[in-house]
């Protein structure tokens, strides 16, 4: 076992034991952090490895959230509602694959971004189903610790699966598509099929996270699950940390979440502005993200955390 594996193992143990010896707000804080990691990592399957920047990724999150809420209130139970959340998200991903993957680059990103706004409006308007702007409240009590463990589990599962997938043949096909889609086709890769599979996998994690989040927070409305914040924050975490690298979104999530916590207590104003300026700087000077910064690359690669 390499050194880094031991560190990861210890870290996991720590996170598992954490709720028992820290105040509740810390557990809640970590839950949100892990949630962002799940959304950012699942986004990066399509955004980083496949090379299609899916600005509409959080639509899966929202779909999972609403599906879960509606079914749970319909007395379908936690397990079935969660399963349904995944299925609806994946089905939706499969459906939009055919039309949307005909678009490239900027076209694709914008069309998917428009999709979120569409869902936010649908959630507003289909009042009988979704409760409109008042949202849905699920019949349950506030449960932090259990939700924390579910989220931690999903986070580990997401990162682990992405680790395996990107090293597999499937990952090779995705990278080939990203590098040169036309050439990839002439080397036997059915690009539409592979893009669709990537999107479906990406959607499954996000929609399950939507379900868990709803279970935790008990109340959802269109703005919370289809709004700009949940749409943009995880994606910027992935880009800031380093898109296309396994630890990229994780680093990005930690960075942004911690900085935000510190800022919140010190400076009451201009959070959004500071966040904005920070990502401007990243865009200008660190397009590969934090993990690809010259002085970080070599050490990270030596630790086995970064691949070329």
């Amino acid at each position: 076992m390499k050194k880094i594996h031991i560190v990861i193992f210890i870290g996991l143990i720590l996170f598992i034991l954490l709720p028992h010896f820290t105040p509740r707000y810390m557990t809640a804080f970590l839950l949100l952090l892990f949630m962002h990691i799940v959304i950012a990592e699942s986004y990066d399957i399509v955004g980083g490895y496949l090379g299609y920047i899916n600005m509409g990724h959080s639509a899966f999150f929202g779909i999972g959230a609403y599906t879960f809420a509606i079914l749970l209130n319909g007395n379908f139970g936690f397990f079935l509602s969660s399963l349904a959340a995944i299925l609806v998200g994946v089905l939706f991903a499969a459906l939009i694959s055919f039309p949307f993957f005909r678009l490239r680059g900027a076209y694709f990103s914008l069309a998917t971004f428009g999709l979120i706004r569409l869902f936010e409006l649908l959630a507003f308007n289909l009042r009988s189903l979704t409760g409109g702007s008042s949202g849905i409240m699920i019949k349950a009590e506030y449960r932090l610790t259990l939700a924390y463990y579910f989220t931690l589990g999903l986070c580990v599962l997401t990162v682990g699966l992405i680790f395996l997938l990107t090293r597999s043949r499937l990952g090779l096909a995705w990278t080939a598509i990203r590098e040169d889609e036309e050439v990839a086709q002439t080397f036997g890769i059915n690009t539409l099929k592979h893009k669709c599979v990537a999107l479906m996998i990406s959607a499954s994690f996000a929609s399950l996270m939507g379900a868990f989040y709803t279970w935790y927070i008990i109340f959802i409305n269109p703005k919370v699950v289809f709004g700009l914040e949940i749409a943009l924050v995880p994606i910027s975490m992935a880009m800031l940390g380093g898109s296309g690298a396994l630890i990229g979104p994780i680093v990005g999530a930690f960075f942004i979440t911690i900085v935000e916590e510190i800022l919140w207590t010190k400076v009451p104003y201009f959070h959004l502005a500071a966040y904005g300026i920070a990502i401007v700087l990243v865009g200008l000077f660190m397009p590969g993200g934090i993990v690809r910064l010259k002085w970080l690359r070599k050490p990270l690669m030596r630790l086995g955390l970064l691949e070329d």
């Binding site: 090779l172 096909a173 080939a176 050439v183 036997g188």
Partner: peptide
Amino acid sequence: FLGLSVLRNVLVGIYY
């Protein structure tokens, strides 16, 4: 495939 190693370039053809 510029971002891939020489070996993986060939592997694409072999696998797919």
